[in-house]
Each structure stands twice: as C-alpha cells, then as structure tokens.
C-alpha cells in the first residue's frame, strides 16, 4: 500500500475518533442526571460499536483526559472527569 493511503486511513480513523468522542460525551451527559459512572457496555451501546472497536475509542479518550476510570476493586466503570459526588471528595487538594 502506498504510504499516502496509510496516512489517509489514519486520518479517517482520526475523524471517526472525533465523531465517536462527541457522540459518547453527549450520550453520557444526557444520562448524567441519573448516574455519573457507567459500565463499559453502556459506552459500547452509545457508540453503537462492537466492544473491541469501542475499546479503541475509549482507551484514547482516557489518554486524552475526556474519560476517567473508576474502580471498586472488583468492577471498573467509566465517567467524565469531574462529574459525580466522588470526584469532589477525591480530587486531591
């Protein structure tokens, strides 16, 4: 494959990422009145994607700081940074 094609594919992915990011953040904000922490499955549903595809977007959003992990030790959940009761209690001074 020509290097430019690879580059355009990467660009394509980047576009998808931006779209998915907006979709996910909007989806989560809509639900944020009733809850602020979400299971991974909830995120995949909002993204309307297979778990492995959704994971790529979610991982990148974590790295970029648009999402954060929450863990009870046994179960992991995701949230938007700063949202929810615990965030206030835990963001260290």
């Amino acid at each position: 494959m020509h290097p430019l094609h690879i580059f355009s594919e990467v660009l394509q992915m980047a576009l998808d990422y931006e779209e998915s990011k907006t979709k996910l953040i909007e989806g989560l904000k809509k639900k944020s009145k009733s809850k602020t922490k979400f299971y991974f499955n909830d995120l995949a549903k909002i993204l309307e994607a297979k778990p492995r595809e959704a994971k790529k977007v979610v991982n990148r959003m974590i790295i970029d700081g648009h999402l954060e992990y929450w863990s009870s030790g046994s179960t992991s959940m995701y949230g938007i940074p700063g949202m929810g009761k615990q965030a206030a209690a835990e963001h260290e001074d």
Binding site: I63, Y69, W70, S71, G73, Q86
Partner: peptide, 19 residues
Amino acid sequence: KHGGIVGVFGYGGGVIGRY
C-alpha cells in the same frame, strides 16, 4: 469508603482506592 478514581496514568487497574 469503597473504590475510587485513583490509578496510575493509562492504567484502569492495579490500584484500588481506599478512603
């Protein structure tokens, strides 16, 4: 209190928040 949002950068496991 059980659990929390602490962790090391990029990892979603390995640290369990206790307060």
